[in-house]
Amino acid sequence: MSMAMDTNDRRVPPTARPAIWRDALPFLVFLLIGGCCFLLYWMVDGRRETIDVSRSTQDMLFEDYATLSGHEPDAQEKKKIVDSYISDEILFRESLRRRLYLSDGNIRQRMIDQARFLIGGSPGDPTEAQMRAYYAAHADLYRQEPEISFQHVFFRTMPADPVSILLALREGTDVKGDDFWMGHELPSYGASMISSMFGLDFLHALEKAPLDSWSGPIRSSRGFHFVKVTARTSAIQMPYDSVKHEIEADMTSEMRDDAIATEITRLRRSYDVIIQK
């Protein structure tokens, strides 16, 4: 009975099992390395970008070449043209990958402007009724701004005796100051023009200065001025017919801005915006 059990029971002894794992280990390592290689290929090669040089693109490139050179490109020239296009495309994508546009303000602004143009599109022309309604609702936009006419004697630096100069001017005596590039009589200058040329404080001083009497010196962004205001014109509402084209342009611009704002709102949902405090 005992002999029969010894003969039939041939199970693998426990001490022999580690040898099986030792024999299988190289195969498992091979599978692991192979899997890593496949994963690496999928990450590097499986996601390769495609540069598709379509037939229409080639025709455009060859047409541009013919226009500039005066003859159709032969086979060798065509290959060179296509290779050059591919090289430029690779460099362009590389510049995007490296985010070079962030370090060049001009490139960044051109890209933004182009995106605005593509998103904003070309809104339809507003109707006559819509333009008249816009004119009525935005009357302040179509008012001719106040104008001031004045004479001035200009000094680059504060004169030594400003009181004597002012008295002389009020008595009608000619006073020679420094040359001024716009001259010494400035008729019918709009408020915005005066502010941009001399500064806002100078404009406010002119608005308060007495008519037909010398005053000063008034300091500006350019120097010091003795001034005599000769006329002031109040803001005037411009007639609809005289600003019709401006209204159309303003409405078109506003519709385009609305379209851009709507699209930016939609796109912003895809971003996590963090504003550093």
Rank of each mutant, 00 (worst) to 15 (best):
E94S: 04
I194T: 06
A191R: 13
G120M: 04
S195E: 13
R22S: 00
L141G: 09
L267S: 02
R256D: 06
T173I: 02
S188T: 07
F92A: 05
M131P: 00
Q130P: 02
L186A: 05
F198A: 08
L39V: 12
Q130Y: 03
R268L: 04
G177T: 14
T252N: 12
L40H: 07
R132S: 08
I264L: 00
D272C: 00
E246K: 14
E248I: 10
D174P: 08
D174Q: 08
M251G: 01
L32V: 15
S2P: 05
D88Y: 13
R222L: 15
T67K: 14
Q114H: 12
W21D: 13
D64Y: 03
P162A: 07
T7Q: 14
R17N: 05
R256H: 01
H245G: 10
G34N: 10
Q144T: 08
D23L: 05
L169S: 08
I20A: 09
R108A: 09
G216Q: 09
A66W: 02
T57P: 00
F155M: 10
I275Q: 15
I236N: 13
F62V: 13
I33A: 15
E171Q: 04
V227A: 10
M43N: 08
S195C: 06
S196H: 11
A160I: 06
I86M: 05
L211D: 10
M60K: 11
R222A: 14
V175H: 04
G190F: 01
A75I: 11
M251P: 08
I247Q: 09
W42E: 00
H138M: 01
S103L: 01
G35K: 10
D23Q: 06
K228Q: 13
T67S: 14
F155T: 14
R219Q: 10
S215N: 13
D178V: 10
F62C: 11
P73V: 15
S215D: 15
E145G: 06
F117E: 15
D6F: 06
L96M: 09
T57F: 12
P14D: 07
D250N: 05
G177N: 03
A231E: 12
D161I: 04
G35R: 00
I51Q: 12
R156I: 13
G35W: 13
R48I: 04
D174S: 01
G120A: 09
V175M: 03
I119L: 06
M1Y: 07
E94K: 09
E246H: 15
S87F: 03
S196N: 14
I165T: 01
D64V: 01
R256S: 06
G172Y: 05
M193S: 09
